[in-house]
Simulated assay, not measured.
Amino acid sequence: MATIKSAISLSSSSDRPGRISGEVHVIVGPMFAGKTTALLRRIKSEVNNGRKVAMIKSSKDTRYAIDSIVTHDGMKFPCWALPELLSFKQRFGDDAYEKLDVIGIDEAQFFEDLYDFCCKAADRDGKTVIVAGLDGDYLRRSFGSVLDVIPLADSITKLTARCELCGKRAFFTLRKTKETQTELIGGAAVYMPVCRQHYVNGQVVLEAARRILESHKVRSDSYLEATSVV
């Protein structure tokens, strides 16, 4: 009886008006699926609604800018570039952190402490956390801790790209180069989105990728030669 009363008391106290309640939203997909674009749109919507936001990305990603999140088509938003997420509160400042409503995390696959951070930020601190990242690597295996936060999520959005070889929906990321390490940061020169058929037909895809790269190189060399002549 005492246990039942304790449970009822705990339930009643936790449901009082004003109780802090956080959220976790996850955006996944292959490269070039628009994950960062979707994240920035959501963040800008939160800003327009008067909520205070902060953006975080991995300090490993320096492709476009060090202190900004930048999409492949040029959208930009200032951010904190960090080696790990659990250092964010201290670096941001306790008072400033308390006033935050929303935290966006881009390239989430690079953060080993993603699960712990989402738990603390949403469950304990009442923050809305929006996570964007790759759900799989170039071998179609789980990448980092992104899939680990699925059980925590209030919503999950799976985006697709367009297969670079046939135009169908692309669910996978193909690496064009010979490197085999899991973490190899790069853009269109290193990766392409592909459909299942063109992923499975690996040798055909790789040969097509080499032709595309060679075509880009030829056009680039021709441009440089023309420029030097002028």
Rank of each mutant, 00 (worst) to 15 (best):
I4C: 09
I4E: 00
I8Q: 10
S9F: 01
S12D: 12
R19T: 12
E23M: 07
V24F: 11
V28M: 09
G29Y: 07
M31S: 08
G34T: 07
R41W: 06
R42D: 13
K44V: 10
N48F: 15
N49W: 14
G50P: 08
R51K: 08
K52G: 03
V53D: 09
K60P: 00
D61W: 08
T62Y: 11
H72G: 03
C79G: 01
W80S: 07
A81F: 08
F92A: 06
D95C: 13
K99G: 07
I103C: 05
G104Q: 00
E107D: 02
A108H: 06
Q109Y: 03
E112H: 13
D123K: 10
D125C: 07
D137C: 03
D137F: 12
R141L: 06
S142E: 13
F143S: 11
L147C: 05
L152D: 09
I156E: 12
K158M: 13
T160K: 14
A161T: 04
L165Q: 05
L174T: 03
K176F: 07
K176I: 11
K176R: 08
Q181H: 12
E183K: 01
L184Q: 10
L184V: 15
V200G: 00
G202Y: 04
L206A: 03
L213W: 10
E214T: 04
H216M: 12
K217T: 02
D221G: 05
E225L: 11
S228Q: 15
